[in-house]
Design a protein around this nucleic acid. Structure first.
Lengths: 349, 349
DNA sequence: AGCGGCCTTGCAATCGATTGTTCCGCGGAA
DNA sequence: TTCCGCGGAACAATCGATTGCAAGGCCGCT
């Protein structure tokens, strides 16, 4: 019944290949597996390979998985597939994992924590070999959950505070430094930060990076205006931006923790009839698709999310192969992309 | 060995639940499956359920899959995960499939045809219960491949010429009609079409829809300027747009087959110092994220891709449950979204 | 010449759930 | 009272690949 989708076409099994080549199924198994191939005489191997090709044999991963406990499946947890930041990560990761022979089960988590653990439990039941997590907060119970169960996992984009698992992230401190340096060089004196949620490492580290960069540029970091958005969305960015403008005077430049927050800031400038970069310069973070098309084209810090996904795939592969190797952190360097949303501050009179 | 990730934690099997409740494993299996539960005495069912809960029993989908040939897995083939059009489709589909108890394997196809068939073969080996295809061209061998192998599949976004499989698409003819009507009402007389590749139903049907809509508005459809882009990308859109402007005079409005093509057209207007909508009005198709932020904000035809994904999931579920039911087509109505890229034509002198 | 060991292959158990078949015991009907 | 039937549960085969173990043959060494 299994493997038989209709009347005529039956899937061919190891045993059939064995019969055709006149050996036992176990020998076929060994001959087909590169790791055990050396146990079989070369001449026999060749005969078996020929028979397998002739029959069009395709191994059944389900049966193999049952026996071995491995599955060549990895799960990827993303907060939101449709988010233009996570899509390239997914894309890069699946590309590389595919090369390595894994198939990818994608889980869109939504936002509930409990659900996240449930999803992982379901993936474990499916015998996934490992997990790529793009969802974790700075201190996430999910990490402990995976470690306790010896499930290989790596983090991507967002890291956790303790580095218990391998992770690939952007250098958020450097990113903010590039941003602040750029604004400072343009002559800005009153630079504000539109921060992201601090439960995520990106929000937290970029905020800290902003403070450090301000200090490095000779500003009083503690006095620098800063508002925290509830989420990395355009709407939350707009809300925080309004607070920022309402409670602080004389801001001429804004370093946002994220492009969507920056776009939310754009919306508020529109509302209030302020020009960008005439009245206020804005710099984003991520360089997500199409931000070069908005008006004004957004100056931002580019992160190669696709590359991030690829590296995460590599790290996961290693974590699966060598479960006891120590966690490694890969930090990718971001890059300043200057467009039209930043300029010298309006001349003060 | 299998199911045992470390020393202490062993997964519990049916047999252990059976021992605890004093019955045979097969009885446990029947008691746990709602469909066969009636074969077991209610009192025994209750005892078994209690034991299962106590042990924290979780059925092994791999073993079940081996036996039954079903897997609760579905594959989704997309041309490009990172494409902002396909991401919401994926998102909507996974959301609904998750509710229905399926997990989703995502395959990013790239563009080679052969590779596509290989991927499907691999998915079939994994015993996927069905497929959602967002990749097919108007006449795609992949469709025949699935049908021959009795693999339930549905199409999304792009349809094929013969309706052999269920599909959910946008009403492309209506979309173009909305676009042309809008431009015509604004007073445009010389309306051009920036078409997409005609090997895809979207490119083909929108082009035909454009011609029909032009005729309906009293224009000579055959004489209307039209250039076909090689791909649904910004770059290809720019190339086609240059051809359009170089070979036709007096165009005042452009109906693009897709937002990315429209953005490519923006690029060309920039190059040539033409204003939009001052000199030329442009209308897109899809309403993908952020096109409200570009300058000028893009007037476009909105398609709810997320809803498309959801409906595709429903259709697939039906196709799996009733493999012999006839193919159904779901056509979603698109909607005109007026923004800033369309206006009355420049007054002719 | 005999024996130990290695190389190659076959045998059979195993992974865990599902399901066709068998078996048992009890109640009702002849 | 006996037999049939049936509900309910156990038994065992099965899905297909993997792998520890056993067996057989050949070679070399003493």
């Amino acid at each position: 019944m299994a493997g038989k989708r209709n009347g005529k076409r039956t899937t061919i099994t190891l045993k059939e290949v064995a019969e055709l080549s006149g050996v036992h199924a176990s020998t076929v198994s060994r001959a087909l597996n590169p790791a055990t191939r050396s146990m079989v005489m070369p001449a026999v191997v060749e005969r078996i390979l020929k028979a397998a090709k002739k029959l069009g044999y395709q191994p059944d991963p389900v049966a193999a998985s049952l026996r071995t406990g491995r599955s060549s499946l990895v799960g990827i947890l993303v907060p939101d597939i449709a988010n233009t930041v996570f899509a390239p990560i997914l894309s890069g990761a699946t590309e590389r994992l595919d090369e390595q022979g894994y198939s990818v089960i994608v889980s869109d988590v939504g936002n509930e924590q409990g659900r996240q653990i449930d999803l992982v439990a379901k993936l474990m039941a499916r015998r996934v070999d490992g997990l790529i997590l793009a969802t974790v907060s700075r201190d996430d119970p999910l990490v402990a959950y995976c470690i306790e169960r010896n499930l290989p996992a790596v983090l991507v984009n967002r890291a956790e505070t303790q580095s218990r698992l391998s992770a690939v992230v952007s250098d958020d401190a450097l990113g903010m430094q590039l941003a602040v340096d750029h604004l400072s060089e343009l002559g800005h004196k009153r630079i504000a930060h539109l921060a992201g949620p601090t439960r995520h490492s990106t929000g937290f580290l970029r905020r800290r990076g902003f403070a450090q960069a301000m200090a490095a540029n000779g500003f009083d970091a503690a006095a620098a205006p800063c508002e925290v958005a509830d989420a990395f969305t355009r709407e939350a960015g707009a809300v925080a931006m309004r607070r920022l403008l309402d409670t602080h005077r004389g801001i001429t430049a804004i370093a946002a923790a994220n492009d969507l927050l920056a776009l939310g800031a754009y919306d508020v400038l529109h509302e209030r009839g302020l020009s960008c970069p005439g009245a206020i310069s804005i710099i984003g973070h991520n360089d997500m698709p199409l931000v070069d098309m908005v008006a004004p084209a957004l100056t931002t810090i580019r992160i190669s999310h696709r590359e991030m996904g690829r590296q995460a795939a590599d790290l996961l592969h290693q974590a699966i192969e060598q479960p006891d190797a120590p966690a490694r952190n890969v930090v990718l360097p971001p890059k300043l992309i200057v467009r039209k949303s930043t300029a010298a501050p309006p001349s003060t009179k």
